[in-house]
Structure formats: structure tokens, C-alpha cells
Design a binder for these strands. Structure first.
Lengths: 144, 144
DNA sequence: ATGACATATATGTCATGACATTTATTTGTT
DNA sequence: AACAAATAAATGTCATGACATATATGTCAT
């Protein structure tokens, strides 16, 4: 089997290409695709713990802690104490974070249109289903 | 959640899940999935430059340099001087590298069977085609 | 032949992912 | 209440990816 044919490498290389494209498009705003994914989740609902945020973005808690620290240093989010649990903090979007989201949303949309050029809606749906199935297979094995 | 957001999320998370699974399976042999991808490429043809190897694995030259250094320290590959160009070196598989490949090949195969459980051949083919199309779209944009 | 430019590799930096460990706090058991 | 176990977050380490730059060597125009 040639490497090009190996599904794992196809998936990872495609993901990296998409990430690179988004990174390039976001570069003038000093926001990386991973930071973007966190901002977008917070837009759907903030004042949540690092742990909850980690679950929602599908990332390791340690990594979310570090990405959040970066976003906080940039003034896009803030961590405030959780009055119900002194171990945890609640992550909130700052106004500047909300402004950045408004700026970057159309750019994100343009990038995705480029990436999905020539791909039909039903193909994308199947693609997502297959990826979800593979993810389930992996996670079942990792936990079992 | 917008559809295209879900797709980027799906691709990167699925790729990470597969990488994690392979990493776990390879852990006893002290070989990472990325190191594995380089070994497999060398198996198809070694005595090639870092630059050529980078092209074949689809990775940055700087990263291939570093991964190669690790593999050389482990005694799996060797860099020998290129008699035709003193700037470059030729990367060769060592016997121990070839042995590791024979050991890990069936493990890699098992992992792929786990990941692809419940997915038909024609679905996998379509999946690869769609991913290739998206990769082309990205690369065309990055270069253009 | 020489100097300007190109190329191959190496190295430095930052962001990230995975994972182990630490620290502070909470919870549960007695 | 006291102590053990669990939990949330932070931190440390290594591998990697992207990118900039450095260094050595090669190539080309003159």
C-alpha cells in the first residue's frame, strides 16, 4: 500500500492543510485555528469551567488550559473564580473576543468555501458519517 | 454549530484519534506514528535526500530532519554523505529499522482493521477521494 | 575565476497534542 | 471532625508542525 493510499495519512494531511489555510487567513489577527475553535465554543456558551470547555472542544484539559492562558493574555477571554468551587474557574468571552469573532467569522466561511469547492452536500454528509464511525471505532478501542 | 465547522472538527479529531490508537499500539517499540510514516517511506526506497524524503512523506523539511535525527539515534536509519553534493546526505534504512518494520507491519494492519470496522471498501474509496479533493483545494489556494 | 544567488540541511522559536505529575480544593467515609 | 480518595487546574516533558533564519555548498552570469 502506498502511503498516499493510507487513510490515516490522508486524514491527517488533509486536516493539516485545512489548518494551514485557516492559519494563513487568520494570521493578521494573531489568532490560531486552535484558539479560534475555543473562541467559537465559548460563543455558544461561556462562563464554563476548563474541564467543560475541554469536553466541548474535544481537547486535552492541559492543552485547553494553555490555549486559554494565551487567549487571556491577548485580552480575548477572562477566567473568573468559580464561587461554587475554588479549584475551578469560569471562562468568559471578553468584548474584544466577541469583536474578533465577528471579524473572523466571514473569513472562516470563505476558507471553508474554498476547501469544499467541488464537493456536494451529500458527499460532505457521508464524509462526516464515515469520520464519526472511525472515531467511534478508535475510542471504543482506546477505552476498552 | 455550522456544518463546515463540524467538518473541520471531525477531520482533525478523527486523525488525532487514529494517531493516538497507533501510538498506543506502537508504544512498546518506541516508535511514533510519524516516525513510522518515515520508516515506511524509506522501505519503498531509501538512499534518498532529506528533501526528497520530505516530499514523499508530505512533511516540512525541518521536521523530517528532526524525526530523522531521532530515528538515527535509535539506530533505525543512517545518514551517509551524498558523494554528489556535500550539502545533502542520503538517508538509509538500517537492518534494525527493517526488523522494526517487519514487527510493526502486522500491528499497523490490525489497527487499520479496527478503525475501518463497519466501513465498506467503496465508502473508504470515496472518503479518500473527498479528502484528496479537499487537500487539492487547500494547496491550490496556499500556492496561488 | 568571482561574486551573486540558489539550494540542502540544520537550528531556533512558538503553538499544539499527549501524557505524567503537582497543587489546591472538594467529597466521601468513618 | 479527621483523614483518604477524587477532582480541577496548572505545570513539566517530549514529539511534532509551521515558519524564520543560519550555515555550508553548489550554480550561474559575467
Amino acid at each position: 500500500m502506498r502511503l498516499d493510499d493510507a487513510l490515516g495519512f490522508a486524514i491527517n494531511n488533509t486536516g493539516r492543510a485545512m489548518t494551514r489555510l485557516l492559519m494563513t487567513a487568520f494570521a493578521p489577527y494573531d489568532v490560531t485555528p486552535e484558539q479560534w475553535s475555543i473562541l467559537k465554543r465559548l460563543e455558544e456558551g461561556d462562563e464554563i469551567s476548563i474541564k467543560e470547555l475541554s469536553k466541548r472542544v474535544g481537547k486535552d484539559q492541559a492543552n485547553v488550559t494553555r490555549i486559554s492562558d494565551l487567549l487571556e493574555r491577548k485580552g480575548l477571554i477572562m477566567k473568573k473564580p468559580n464561587p461554587e468551587d475554588k479549584r475551578s474557574s469560569l471562562v468568559c468571552l471578553m468584548d474584544e473576543g466577541k469583536q474578533i469573532i465577528r471579524l473572523l467569522d466571514p473569513i472562516d466561511e470563505q476558507v471553508h468555501q474554498v476547501v469544499l469547492k467541488g464537493i456536494a452536500e451529500h458527499e460532505m454528509e457521508l464524509l462526516k458519517q464515515l469520520l464519526a464511525k472511525m472515531r467511534e471505532n478508535c475510542n471504543a478501542e482506546l477505552q476498552g
